[in-house]
Write a protein that binds this DNA or RNA. Sequence first.
DNA 1: AAGTCGGGGAT
DNA 2: ATCCCAGACTT
Length: 309
Amino acid sequence: MLQQTRVEAAIPYFEKFLQLFPTLRALAEAEENAVLAAWSGLGYYSRARNLHKAAKKLSVEGIPAAQDRDAFDQLRGLPGVGPYTAAAVASIALGLPHAVLDGNVMRVISRVAADPGEVSAPGTRRRFGELADQLLDRRRPGDFNQAMMELGATVCVPRSPACAECPVSRFCAGRAAGIERELPVKKRAAEVREVALELVVLQQAGEVFLVRRAETESRLAGFWELPEKRRMAGLAGAPQKSFTHQIVNDRFRVNVWHTRRRNTKTERIAEGRWVPLCALGDLPVTTITKKALQALGLDPPIPSRAVGV
DNA sequence: AAGTCGGGGAT
DNA sequence: ATCCCAGACTT
């Protein structure tokens, strides 16, 4: 649950899981649907499937013990258990000397060592991992790892680190050099370019929906969805994300935008044509895929026309 | 090495 | 509006 998810967000789900699946056997014998239902709202649902598979595997092969020479490798071999999770369980649950390297620790290490390495580069990860292993308190590896992550989450935060309250600022090379805010170095994401947008009006069972499909290089490409009510209500307001709707009198249009991710730059490149507006009704706030539309018997019709560049 | 998966909080 | 999160897996 803690993979890419804040502790506070995971806690209620964790407690619900212990209620629903109090033992390894209970989880292993549960239906996958029940596991996914309990996970619903947490996101990254492959984590739930992997957790379920791991429980099944562990219930057959047994749970790794601290005495096992290959305890770390056993953990690493479970579905959904990568370098971070294997090190976290090995150190916290089994007391074994494996340093964790997550987003928080990477930030702390990069600053303490004033290391300008790009964080996604394999060489940087290896270097940070080696330093974390050197720093690790081998008598209390679990506590050390949690302390490193907590330091990153509460003091050595991304935007404005609280160096005055930091227990290790005396040893921090990044702080000494005054570059703590520049670290860690991250690669800028590639530009995402929106190339077209199709828009159709879908009439079904007396209700009228506006359905759009973004033809982009992003992950929305090819998906049909219902526009959010908030965007429709925004009318001539500020743009949101990569396209907006405008409604004036009895017509509507869609504006298409260039977007860059992680670069704070949104550049307007085209405005859609004005087309007649049907009665919109009360639009649901939801996002659905083309597949889901078909399952509901709401096959999207032929697009009325493509708008944009 | 790059892309994908999500919901939510902080700034 | 953007960034980031106690990452892992596939391509």
